[in-house]
Nucleic acid binder design. Structure first.
Length: 579
DNA sequence: GCCGTTTTCGGCCCGACTGTTTTCAGTCG
């Protein structure tokens, strides 16, 4: 059973307990445990099998027993009894913003309502306003929220949100009332998708700043405008919130609005243990009210005995424990990247020539790029026959003579066919310097077959790397069903590198699996899979995932200078390569 | 239900907003 399923199980218990009116601390305990398991860089099933469930922070005797029963038998007597006590349909009502457990329970008890449809119906007939604690306004709000829920916009890709936020930051910097400004929220943490875009400003005149923000030309609709906060819908239909605070509160506010929530809660608990109080206004001594920090974010962490940590780490996945022990990782940086090992050109489905791609990489300060056009079976991408591949490689030789010391590596993105064989014969593969294997077909094969297929490809000594390991497209396609734990273990054993595909639609591996890959000793490579020179800039999103997965420079293959990379490649295949 | 740099019991993040209320409950982020 996957970690996400176990986390859902605990979340359902939390919801049902909440609807029952149980202590919010008990409810919170289940939620904490769910979040921890969701973020666990290891299969919870393995943790359970080795008797270590209670070593997970937030998992004690009782929750461990319930998870154990679930994993052992596939069911839970506790959850089943809760479902008998609390109508499980009620959970659906909690999805309506503004409707919490108390009012949901009231609505259910008096009117028997348990679906969002019935709720909307009752609101339209003004039957909700007769209930205790609900009058006209609440009823209207519920109806509004139900309608919004039904046409809710999707989450925003990082690759869309970050450029949009940067544009606004640039525009707002020109405002003389703006002192400091930065994106906050999940965007600052480089999460793969975000719900909305948060921007924080410090200013002596916050009200002027929020007004100026609401007047920006990119604004389509003002959703709310006050002296410290403005919320707008942009012409691209992105929700953007700007908050303005006083300069001496900026650091504490940035910390607070960056989150995530679990990280903040844990941090505030640390503050309490010191006899302090932490809020978005600053860090204060509880007894005297004296301000200990607030203007700079790093001071807030330092005053709590912690090193400042990059936002990408702030998910309460163990970063606070690591900071307390002085063992934070030194995360890989964008500037550490020396080249890109997956890129496409006009030879298959890209839009630029090999020369244009190579020069664009050189201009970015890279030492190398592997041009990895597709193999023949990927007809839609005009995959190259062995003959055309040969022509392309001759062009590479010619370009390398001209562009030296910059180096184009001879590569291909080779399909792993349905039976696990590769889409070029070995004598073709052995002419290549970088062989990137990936799956583009047969997504419907079951978990075992797909996994077997990848393992078979790993046995071919010509394979250097596995690209986009799950095949997912964010918000569009789930990817194929694959046992990643097994794949990563095999990658570690065979020395095949695994890609973090930096395309904002993929970001595959994701952050949690990256962390797991690191623990297993897998070599990771961050590639853009660029199909045009502009897409080479996707690298920063992939580095964001690497950082969220705690990777350091030494964990990332393409931080190696050219010579060391070539040595790595030839060591891998256990034979000499053409110089 | 979990947990321990005052605790194996008694705490558990903080502040803001809204609406329904006459001092607070519910919800959110």
């Amino acid at each position: 059973m996957r970690n996400a399923e176990v986390a859902d199980f605990l979340d359902e218990i939390a919801d049902l307990l909440e609807l029952k009116g149980e202590s919010r601390y008990r409810v919170g305990a289940y939620r904490t445990a769910a979040a921890r398991i969701q973020n666990l860089p290891e299969s919870v099933e393995d943790v359970w099998a080795s008797g270590r469930l209670q070593e997970i922070p937030g998992v004690g005797e009782s929750i461990a027993a319930k998870v154990g029963e679930l994993l052992q038998t596939g069911r839970s007597t506790y959850l089943e009894s809760l479902r008998r006590e609390v109508s499980p349909g009620l959970r659906e009502l909690l999805r309506v913003p503004g409707l919490g457990p108390a009012r949901a329970q009231t609505i259910h008890r008096y009117l028997g309502i348990q679906t969002i449809q019935e709720l909307a119906e009752a609101a339209r007939q003004h039957r909700l306003r007769e209930l205790p604690g609900i009058r006209e306004k609440t009823e209207e709000k519920i109806l509004r929220e139900v309608e919004r829920l039904q046409q809710r916009t999707r989450r925003i890709l990082l690759g869309v949100a970050l450029p949009a936020a940067e544009e606004v930051v640039q525009l707002m910097r020109r405002d003389p009332n703006v002192r400091r400004i930065a994106p906050a929220g999940s965007l600052r943490r480089m999460k793969e998708t975000v719900g909305d875009i948060d921007i924080l400003v410090s200013s002596e005149r916050p009200a002027e700043v929020t007004k100026a923000f609401a007047k920006l030309p990119i604004v389509k609709e003002i959703l709310g405008l006050g002296p410290t906060k403005a919320s707008v819908l942009t012409k691209d239909n992105l929700q953007m919130d700007l908050r303005a605070v006083k300069p001496d509160e900026y650091g504490a506010a940035l910390q607070y609005f960056t989150g995530n929530k679990e990280h903040n809660i844990a941090l505030r608990e640390i503050a309490i243990r010191h006899g302090y109080k932490l809020s978005e206004y600053g860090l204060f001594e509880e007894s005297t009210g004296r301000r200990l920090a607030g203007e700079d974010e790093a001071d807030v962490y330092r005053a709590l005995g912690l090193e400042w940590m990059p936002p990408e780490l702030r998910e309460n996945r163990g970063e606070l424990e690591a900071a307390l022990a002085g063992r934070l990782p030194k995360l890989v940086k964008l500037e550490d990247i020396r080249g890109d090992l997956q890129a496409h050109t006009k030879w298959s489905d890209g839009t630029a020539t090999q020369e244009e791609m190579a020069k664009a990489c050189r201009d970015m300060g890279y030492e190398y790029v592997a041009i990895t056009d597709h193999s023949p079976s990927l007809g839609v991408a005009r995959g190259l026959s062995p003959e055309r591949l040969g022509e392309k490689l001759r062009e590479v030789d010619e370009l390398n003579a001209r562009l030296a010391p910059f180096r184009i590596l001879k590569g291909a993105e080779v399909d792993i066919r349905a039976d696990g064989t590769l889409d070029y014969p070995d004598e073709v593969l052995s002419q290549l310097e970088v062989v990137v294997a990936s799956i583009h077909s047969g997504f419907e094969q079951g978990r075992e077959r797909i996994t077997e297929r990848i393992l078979r490809a790993f046995k071919n000594p010509n394979v250097d790397m596995l690209a986009h390991p799950t095949g997912r497209l964010l918000d569009r396609r789930a990817g194929y069903d694959v046992d990643l734990e097994t794949v990563l273990r095999a990658a570690a054993a065979t020395g095949v590198a695994v890609e973090i595909n930096a395309s904002p639609e993929r970001l595959d591996l994701n952050d949690v699996w990256t962390l797991r890959a690191k623990e297993l000793g897998v070599t990771i490579c961050v590639n853009t899979d660029a199909h045009s020179p502009g897409q080479l800039g996707f690298m920063r999103y992939g580095v964001g995932v690497a950082r969220r997965g705690w990777l350091e420079k030494k964990d990332v293959l393409n931080t190696l200078p050219l010579q060391q990379l070539l040595e790595w490649l030839s060591r891998r295949r256990g034979r000499r390569r053409a110089a």
